[in-house]
Simulated scan of single mutants.
Amino acid sequence: MSDMNKDSSAKLLVLTGGPGAGKTSLLTTLQCMGFPTQEEAGRTIIQDQQRIGGSALPWIDPNAFAEQMLGWDMRSYRHAQQESAPVFLDRGIPDIVGYLELCGLPAPAHLDKAARTFRYDQVFLLRPWPEIFVQDRERRQTPDEAARTCEAMERVYSRLGYQLTEVPRGSLEQRAAFVIDRMNGRG
């Protein structure tokens, strides 16, 4: 990792927004640049639940799905804390609160407490990007739902006192450079 990356005081960095905004692709790019990363809980939980015929799926049991994500995200948080370098996370615990709000469900007290207790150093928001949005077996949301998801994440993180940094559209290299600059206090 270059010296440019080591001088950051930000250690836990979240990429959030709606589905299909390029978060996972940006995370992969940052990982290829040498940054430790933690992948999103949702997609893997969906894949695992489908594989075993489980019901902790957003379209079957949103509360069970949220609990699965909470366990995953708290574990990811702990793993990220053990790294000496800054770590990028594909979503954070507040995303679960936003997800439940989108479903019209209240966040249980323990989830709200987790979102307030497990704090991140910096949050990057990726807005919907219709030109790159793709539906698949795990991503069943429509572009409209993706936009509403982004708005929910922005509301929840703001309500929790985070100042979000919006990542502009561009090539993966441009987006990664933007995030690294902001992470290091430049720009």
Results as ranks from 00 to 15, higher is better:
98 G>F: 00
23 K>T: 00
115 A>M: 10
103 C>L: 03
185 G>Q: 15
39 E>H: 14
16 T>Q: 14
127 R>P: 01
161 G>V: 09
94 P>I: 04
136 D>H: 06
12 L>Y: 02
97 V>H: 09
75 R>A: 11
1 M>H: 14
176 A>M: 10
54 G>S: 08
69 M>F: 04
51 R>F: 02
40 E>S: 13
54 G>C: 05
7 D>N: 13
106 P>I: 05
78 R>L: 12
49 Q>E: 15
123 V>Y: 01
62 P>M: 05
45 I>C: 11
110 H>S: 13
36 P>I: 09
170 G>Y: 14
148 R>D: 01
14 V>Y: 02
107 A>L: 04
62 P>K: 07
181 D>T: 12
59 W>T: 03
5 N>C: 07
128 P>L: 15
94 P>H: 01
170 G>A: 10
20 G>V: 00
20 G>F: 00
161 G>Q: 10
50 Q>E: 10
66 A>K: 03
174 Q>I: 00
48 D>Q: 14
52 I>T: 12
139 R>Y: 12
110 H>R: 15
162 Y>G: 02
150 C>T: 02
97 V>K: 09
6 K>S: 11
102 L>W: 09
21 A>I: 04
129 W>F: 03
105 L>H: 04
116 R>L: 07
64 A>P: 05
184 N>S: 13
127 R>T: 06
176 A>V: 06
158 S>T: 15
185 G>R: 15
79 H>V: 08
2 S>P: 00
25 S>D: 11
110 H>I: 12
62 P>G: 04
121 D>Y: 03
149 T>C: 12
143 P>V: 09
101 E>Y: 05
173 E>A: 14
99 Y>M: 11
81 Q>A: 10
32 C>N: 15
94 P>S: 01
133 F>D: 08
46 I>H: 10
64 A>C: 05
36 P>N: 00
28 T>L: 15
64 A>I: 06
179 V>I: 04
115 A>Y: 06
148 R>Y: 00
38 Q>A: 13
177 A>I: 08
26 L>E: 07
64 A>T: 06
31 Q>H: 15
106 P>W: 14
173 E>Q: 15
124 F>D: 10
93 I>G: 01
172 L>A: 07
130 P>K: 11
79 H>K: 15
141 Q>H: 06
76 S>Y: 08
4 M>C: 08
105 L>I: 08
161 G>S: 09
161 G>N: 11
154 E>Q: 15
6 K>G: 03
138 E>Q: 11
49 Q>L: 06
